[in-house]
Amino acid sequence: MLAVLSLLNEAPRHPYEMQSLIRQRRIGDVVRMRGGSLYDAVVRLEKLGLAEVAGTSRDGARPERTVYGITEKGRAELRSLLSEYLGERADEYPVFPAALAHAHQLGRAEAGGLLRERAAELAVLIDKVEEDLRSAREAAVPRAVLLETEYAQVLRRAELGWLRGVLADLETGDLEWVELEWVELEEA
């Protein structure tokens, strides 16, 4: 809801244009949106009185598209959400730290292998996002609309540095590991 309200607050848009901006600005890195969910979100916002049809547009021979705009009620909701999300610290429970709390249930080698895979994927993602940020800057995308991507990139880099340190400690033995045995239950 926040992403759609924010895009509509900038200018009236049709959902396809919003999808393009979400990709260009990498908003999908911080907001889960799939295929038709953007269209569903716009319909929900309209039903709630937060968005309204602002007209239609047509590009060349393409079909006519419905353009939506934000309502005053939508602007108030956007302001309320931003005030809450920016000003209040929230406890979040991502799955990776939860898995780290129990990683010792796996053997040192298995846990290390999984962490190495994660580090490799993270390094590739960091490079890809850096390329996307460079392209966005060259396209004169304002930095203010890329802040969440910059923030996520800082977190990725910090995680990668931390992972590399943990992996080094695993390899040298500086990280003590509790080796547990898996007990296979017999079927009754």
Rank of each mutant, 00 (worst) to 15 (best):
P15Q: 08
I27N: 02
A119H: 02
G55P: 10
S83E: 15
W162K: 09
A90C: 02
E159S: 15
S37P: 03
R157N: 04
Q153G: 11
V42Q: 09
V31R: 01
G69I: 11
R89Y: 01
V145W: 15
G112E: 06
V154A: 15
E92F: 01
A54V: 04
G161R: 15
R143C: 02
S6C: 04
E10S: 10
E72N: 09
A168W: 10
A168G: 13
G69S: 11
K47D: 14
T66N: 05
R118K: 11
L45D: 06
E187I: 11
P12C: 10
D59I: 12
A51W: 05
L78H: 05
R134F: 01
M33Q: 12
P15T: 13
A61N: 09
G165V: 11
L114M: 13
R34I: 05
L86E: 14
M33N: 10
S6I: 00
L78E: 09
Y85P: 03
Y16H: 08
D40A: 14
E184P: 03
R156W: 10
E72H: 09
L106A: 11
Y151L: 12
T172L: 05
Q19L: 10
T71A: 06
L45R: 13
F96A: 12
P15Y: 03
A90W: 05
A144V: 14
V129F: 09
S6E: 13
E110F: 04
D29M: 10
L78Q: 04
L86A: 06
A90L: 05
L106F: 02
D127Q: 13
L155I: 09
P12K: 03
T149Y: 07
L50H: 14
A90P: 00
E46I: 01
L78T: 07
Y93L: 11
V124M: 00
A3R: 02
V42K: 07
R137Q: 08
V154D: 12
V141D: 08
N9L: 02
D29K: 08
V43H: 05
L106R: 01
A111T: 02
D91T: 07
H14L: 00
A152Q: 15
F96R: 03
A54P: 00
A103M: 09
L155R: 10
V183R: 12
E130D: 15
G173K: 13
L82H: 00
G35I: 00
D132I: 00
S37L: 04
L100F: 12
S57K: 11
A11S: 13
W182C: 02
E72W: 05
A41R: 12
A101L: 07
L147K: 12
T172F: 07
Y16E: 08
L114V: 05
G107M: 03
E46P: 01
R34M: 06
R25P: 06
R118F: 12
L147C: 03
L122R: 02
L81D: 08
L48P: 00
K47F: 05
A90V: 09
L125D: 13
R137W: 08
L125F: 08
G113Y: 01
E117I: 00
S135H: 11
T71Y: 10
L122F: 02
D40Q: 14
G173S: 11
L100S: 04
A11Q: 14
G107S: 15
A144Y: 08
Q19N: 09
A98K: 14
Q19A: 12
Q153E: 14
A188Y: 08
L2H: 10
